[in-house]
């Protein structure tokens, strides 16, 4: 089968060896940005702008929330050694800390998820890889957000 042999350089003999012919043409690989029938008519919309704005705004809010959280939990009033079940129970008795922690959870999760979404968009090259990575990412994000929210609202300090 000398006709189907390819050289080390990857160039095979042209005559007679091709599996493609006039009736069965080789698949055409479209160049990027080419306008074809499969190209979506428009991928415009305000989602990317919203995501971009959300990153900036949530970042600013998170600076306050997270730094405040770290300061209260780890530095002030005895530091990390004070944290225990009783400390958490005491904090979540107040709606203020419930709202603080809920806001922090939601903003941090959405901020991080959106950031990873951009990283996947920028670095994953194949559509399938993107799909799976993003599926995994969204599943993890939704799970964490729902679980955290559930705990904040249904926390029972008298649990045995």
């Amino acid at each position: 089968m000398a006709t189907t042999e390819t050289t080390a350089a990857g160039i095979g003999p042209v005559e007679g060896g091709s599996v493609y012919d006039v009736d069965n043409p080789a698949p055409l690989i479209e160049a990027p940005r080419q306008r074809t029938k499969k190209t979506p008519r428009s991928t415009r919309g305000n989602f990317e702008m919203g995501a971009w704005l959300f990153m900036r705004l949530s970042g600013v809010v998170l600076v306050v929330l997270v730094l405040g959280h770290l300061l209260i939990q780890l530095v002030l009033d005895g530091g990390v050694s004070k944290i225990g079940f009783a400390f958490v129970a005491g904090r979540w008795a107040s709606p203020f800390w419930q709202v603080w922690d809920l806001l922090m959870l939601w903003l941090a999760m959405l901020h991080g998820t959106n950031g990873l979404r951009t990283v996947i968009n920028d670095y994953a090259e194949r559509a399938n890889t993107r799909l799976w990575l993003k599926g995994l990412l969204y599943t993890a994000a939704v799970f964490t957000i729902l679980l955290g929210t559930l705990v904040i609202f249904t926390f029972d300090p008298n649990i045995r």
């Binding site: 428009s42 991928t43 415009r44 305000n46 989602f47 990317e48 702008m49 971009w52």
Partner: peptide, 11 residues
């Protein structure tokens, strides 16, 4: 509007 695309300025 064209640059508000998914692959526009926001990338």
């Amino acid at each position: 509007e064209i640059l508000n695309d998914k692959d526009g300025v926001w990338r």
